[in-house]
Each structure stands twice: as C-alpha cells, then as structure tokens.
Design a protein around this nucleic acid. Sequence first.
DNA 1: AACACGGGGGC
DNA 2: GCCCCAGTGTT
Length: 356
Amino acid sequence: MDASSDALSSALLDWYDAHARDLPWRSPPGAPPPDPYRVWLSEVMLQQTTVAAVKAYFAEFTRRWPTVKALAAASDAEVMAAWAGLGYYARARNLLACAREVAAQGGTFPDTEEGLRALPGLGAYTAAAVAAIAFERRAVVVDANVERVVARLFALDTPLPGGRTEIREKADAITPEARSGDFAQAMMDLGATVCTSRAPRCLLCPLSPHCRGRATGEPERFPVKAPKKAKPARNGRAFWIEREVDGEGHVWLVRRPGKGMLGGMRALPDDGWSARADGSGEGPLAGPWESAGMVGHVFTHFSLSLNLSVYLGNQCDSLAQEAGEWWPLDRIEDAGLPTLFAKAARLALAETGEEA
DNA sequence: AACACGGGGGC
DNA sequence: GCCCCAGTGTT
C-alpha cells in the first residue's frame, strides 16, 4: 500500500469511527469482533438482500438458535419455514448444511478465508467478509457497495461483470493490513449512505479528495453495467383444496423439490409452471375447480401470472397417496409459505371467506 | 461467461 | 415500470 492508499484508508476509517451504522450483528468501530456465528448468519442473510429486510429475520433466528450448534440441531422444515419470505432459498439450505458441518467440527468456524470458503454457501464475498469482520484477517471484501465506491474512486468504466477483475485489484490495493474488517464495513456503509447508486452525496464523502469519479463531474455514471435482459412472462395455476379435519378447516400443502424454484419450501400444489415455463394445467384432483382470481409475482428472471383454482368437489381422499399434509387454516401464517404462495393463500381466504 | 435463483424498496 | 440490493452454485 502506497502513501496515497494509506491516506485514503485512514480517511475512511476516521469517517467510520464517527458515522458507522449501528446494526444488530455488529460491534462498534475498534471494538473486539462479534461472535463469528452472528457475523456468518448476518452475511448470508444479507446476500442480495437489504439491511431493512434482514433485521427481523436475524432477530428471530438468533432468538431461536443462539449458537451454530443449536441451528445445526434444528430440522430442515423449521429452518426453511423461518426463512420464508426472505428469498433465495438455496441460502437456507446451504445455511443448515454449513451449520451442521461446523457443528460436526466442534462448533467452531474456520478462522481463515480459505477454510471459510470451503463451507456451503460461502463464496468469495462471504468468506472474505467473515474472515475480516469476525477474525480480523486482512481480506479483500468486494460486494456491490465496494464495487460502486471503487469504480467511482478510480473512474473505472469497463462494464460489469467484466470490469470486476480490475475493481478487485484496486480494492486490494487500498485495503489496509490493520482493521481490514472495519475497513470493509466502512466501505459498505459509505456505499449505503453516501456513495449511493443514485444521487451520491459527494459533499459528505471522506474520500471525495481522492475520487476521480467525482472529478469527472458525473460520479453516478460509475459503475458501468451491461444491459439487462428482458424478463419473459409466464402463466401457471395453483390449487386451493380445503377440507374439515377434526371439525377444523384445513388446506392441502405440499413440499417442493429440494432444488430449483422455491426449492425445499412448503407450497400450494401447482401445475408445474416453474419447471415447464408454462404449467400443464393439470391439478392434483380431477375437479371441479373454480377460479378465485390471479396472483401476480415477479421473480429474478421471469414474471408470473398465477391462476388460483379452488376445489369444489369432495374427493379429497385420493390425495392421501400424494406427498403433502393438511394444514390448519387458522395457522396458515406459520406454514412458512414463500411470498408467492402466501399471496395466493390470502386471496383464497378472502374469496372463500366471502362465500361462507 | 452465462444463467438460475426472491423479494422488497426507491423513485 | 425500472433499477437496485452485504452473491452463490451450476452448467
């Protein structure tokens, strides 16, 4: 690190000492690092997910499972249901796999970037972040915030994702030996609160004297990104099947396959829209069906219009051979349905409620 | 290198 | 509506 990089990291750390965000998974600037379990859990939750969305989930997970051993002992169903609504459900599957691997090693996380990188769900970013934040290792932590800050600092205009190599080299060059965890978090806080995607607040930025992006007069132009692909529209059906069990209303829920869309999550039965681009139209029963309306939902790579069909027949017994369960309607909120199916359930309950 | 993979919030 | 977000794993 040359003198200029040293001045830059000092300016950033000074700013962090004064302006660090107070977050539930953090220690104050300069304080001993937090429990690696909490650092890891928060980092996985924060992958492609906003701080605001994570806070409630982090509180609930750490309340129910205070240690990695406790989490490792939880059932798949409990953890998947607790993750419901947070999205990217492969994270939850990997989270549990990782917890069990760590628990099997005595409940202690590896304390090096390489060791962490070998665990399920820890890629280049998360391994570096946990190594730096929880174990005070020097690691080059590059997330979307750091990409934006670095691209602006050096006015890097090679479009992403190709430009990531260059961004990483520059990030490495400015990462200090000491306090690299605070440095990483400072970069992320700066990106989140000052060097924002739109309308960066350069007047508040501790790095503005060093910033070539600002010198161009158009800092918001960086980083340059490749054009987005169009999002196709898909259609599908989901099925709402009620029956009385012990005098209480229940609905038929299934467990989705372990991989792919909403993998491993509890769900309404559907016609296979996720696997086939458009569903077969077939339901788990012959019918009759009545449409309760449409549910719209946008996923990462397509938009879905889901027709919700309510069962009007009384041949539910044939479902006994299918894999699924009758779930009590008055506890539907606890089923751990991903947002798409939670929306569908709200629609069904509103419709069938009016009929009653 | 490209694609699959959720959901919510900002404007 | 479009863009963005503390990315990872698979092909």
